[in-house]
Design a protein around this nucleic acid. Structure first.
Lengths: 193, 193, 193, 193
DNA sequence: AATGAATGAGTTTTCATTCAT
DNA sequence: GATGAATGAAAACTCATTCAT
C-alpha cells in the first residue's frame, strides 16, 4: 500500500517551489527543472502530479487566490459596518500577507499568464468579479448610485499599487499602500454629504 | 530633405513587428523568427540591426515610451491652468493612443520585462519619475502638502486601469478610464476646501 | 478442477490489453501505462508479472501464435486428403479468427518486433518453419519436386494478403483472401498434369 | 547571399541518413539525433529542413517510392508485349535495387508507419493503386475476366516475398523471388488455354 | 545590406523501470 | 499480490545567436 497523503504533500511542495522559483526569476520564464530542484524531486515527478507545466502554474495561481480569498473572508467576518467591510477588503488585498515578496512577484506573473492560459484567465476573472461584487455591496448603503464607480476606483487602485510594488518603484510608500486607498474611500464618501 | 536611410526604415519596421507579435502572443514569449516574419525580413537581419533579442525588445519599449512622452508634451503645451495640466497628463496616459490594443498588450509585457532587464528597468524608472514630477509640480499650487499623496494616487490609478484593460476585465468601463481619474482628482481637490 | 490462480487471470488480462492497445495505436509504440490502464491494473503490476515490456510483448505474440497453431491443428485433424490438408492450413491462416482487426494489427507489429527482439525472432521462425514443413509434407504426393516452390508461394501469398489487410488496402477483396490462395494451389496442381 | 543548392543537398543527405538509420535499428524507432549524426549535422538542422520527425520519415518514404517508380517506368519503356510488361513490373518490384538491405528494411518500416501517419498512408495507397492499375491493364488482353484476380495475386506475392525478406527468413531463395511470381503468372496464363 | 544555413544549449514531456509500503 | 510514488534517461522540438556568402 502506498503512503497515504504523499500526493497532497508533494503537490503543496511543488506549488510552493513554483512560487519561489517565479519570485527568483522575476518571470514566468521558469523551468520545470528549476521548480523540481527547489522541491527536491525529479522533473518527472512534477509531470506525474500535474501533467504539464501549464497545469502546475495554474495550480499555483489557484493556491494564491485561495490564500487571498481566505484573508478576505476572515477579515469580513470581523467587520461590523459597511465602511468596515470596505476596509476589510482593502486590508486583505494590500495586507502584509499579500505583500510578501514572493506573493507580489507571483501575482504580476499570473496577470501575464492569464493572457495566455484560458484556465488562468477564467480563474482570475472569477476572483475579480467576486471582489467587485463584495465592494459594490458594501458601498451601496454608503454611496448609492456612485457605488459602482467607487468600487471600480478601489479595484484599480489596488491593482495599480500592486503593480508598482512588483516593479520595485517607491517601496517605502507602498508598505502602507492601503492608506492611499482608505484616503480615496474617505474623500469619496465625504464628497457625497 | 535627407533621404531616409534603409537602416532607419528597417528598424521601425522591426519595432512595429515586435509590438504586433507581442500583442498576438499576449506575452514576451515571442520569437525572433516570428518578429522577422512579420517584418518580412530574415531572422539574421533582426540581429544585424539590434544585436540581440533583449535590445530589440528594449528598443520597442523605448519607442512606446517616446510616443507616450510626445503625447504628454503636446497636451501640456495646450494646457493653461495647473488643473488643466493634470488633465493633460491623465488624458495622455489614458487617451485613445495609449489604449490601442497592441499598445496596451505591449505595456503590460514591458512592465514584466523590466524585472529582468536592467536597461528596461532604468528606462521605465526614468519615465515614471518624470510623470510623477510633472504631476507633483502641477498639484503643488492646488493641493499643497497633499500633492505627493494625490500624485501617487493618480499614478496608481492609471497603472491599475491599464492592467485591468490588459487583462480584458470590464472593457466597457475602461474605454473612458480617464473619467475615473478625473473624478478622483476633483473629489480630492474639493475635499481640501 | 484446480482453482484458476489470480496470476493466470491477470496475465491473460494483460496480454489481451496489450493486443488491444497495439491495435488502437497501430504500432508497437504502446506504453505500459496504456496497457495497464486497459487491463484495469497499475503500471507496477505489469512489471511484476512480466518483468519488462519486451517480455510482455513477446508473451502476447506467443499467445497469438498459439491461437493460430491451435486453429491449424484443429483443422488438420478434420482433413482427409493431402489436398484437404493444404486447404486446412490456408483456412486456418486466413480464417475469420486470424482476420479479427486486433489480430491483424498485432501480427504486423510482431513481424517488426521480430527484427529487434531475439526472443520474438526465434518464436516467429519456429512457427514459420512448422508452417512450411506442414505445407511441403502435404504437397509432396501432389506436386513432387515442385512442392517446395509451391509451398513457398503459398506462404508468401498468405503473408502478402496479411500485410495488405493490415494496411487497409482493398478490404472487400481480402475478406476472402483464402480464395486467392486456393486458386493458386488449384492452378499450380492443374498445371502438373 | 547564401550558398545555392545547399538545401537540396542537405535534404538528400538527411534522407539517406534516415534510411541508413532505419536499417541499422531495424525499426522506425529511430531518433533524430541518430539521423543527424549519420548525416554529420546537428539535430536542429533536421528540424530546420523538415519541421518534424514525421515529415522527415515521410520524405524518406517518398524518396524510396520515387526510386521504385522510376525503375518501373524505365523497365516498362523497354517492354514490348503485355506479358513483357508484367515481367517488367515484377522485375522492378523485386529487382536488385529493391533488395538492397537498406531498402528492404525501410519498406517494412514504412508499411508500419503508414498505419500511424495519414500522409504516409496516402502516399502508399497512391503507389499501390498505380501498381495494380498497371498490372490489370497488362493482364486484360491476356487473362480477360481473371485479370483482377491475377493482379491481386501478383501484388500479394510481391508484398509477401518482401516481408519475408525483411524478416530474414530463407535469404537464399528470395534472391530470385521474382521467379516465384513469374511462375505464378505463367501457370495462371497457361491454365486459361 | 541581407540571407538563411547551421549550431548547441535548453525546453517540455514521455516512459520503462524500481521500490517502499 | 498490488499499488503508485519516484526516478533518470532520452525523446522531439525550439530558439537565440553566429557566420559564410
Amino acid at each position: 500500500m502506498p503512503k497515504i497523503g504523499v500526493e497532497s504533500v508533494r503537490r503543496k511542495e511543488l506549488i510552493a517551489a513554483a512560487i519561489s522559483a517565479i519570485h527568483a526569476r522575476g518571470s514566468l520564464d521558469v523551468t520545470i527543472r528549476d521548480i523540481a530542484a527547489r522541491a527536491g524531486v525529479s522533473q518527472g515527478l512534477a509531470h506525474h502530479y500535474f501533467g504539464s507545466k501549464d497545469r502546475l502554474i495554474t495550480s499555483a495561481m489557484r493556491h494564491l487566490l485561495e490564500l487571498y480569498s481566505a484573508q478576505v473572508r476572515q477579515r469580513l467576518r470581523r467587520a461590523g459596518s459597511p465602511r468596515e467591510r470596505i476596509s476589510a477588503i482593502v486590508a486583505a488585498s494590500l495586507g502584509d500577507d499579500q505583500f510578501q515578496p514572493e506573493v507580489v512577484s507571483a501575482w504580476l506573473v499570473f496577470y501575464v499568464h492569464a493572457q495566455v492560459s484560458a484556465d488562468a484567465r477564467k480563474l482570475l476573472a472569477l476572483y475579480t468579479r467576486r471582489l467587485r461584487s463584495n465592494l459594490v455591496h458594501a458601498l451601496k448603503p454608503l454611496a448609492g448610485a456612485r457605488a459602482g464607480l467607487i468600487a471600480e476606483g478601489i479595484g484599480a487602485l489596488i491593482d495599480g499599487i500592486y503593480i508598482r510594488q512588483a516593479l520595485g518603484s517607491d517601496p517605502q510608500m507602498f508598505r502602507d499602500g492601503h492608506r492611499l486607498v482608505e484616503d480615496y474611500v474617505d474623500v469619496q464618501l465625504a464628497a457625497l454629504r
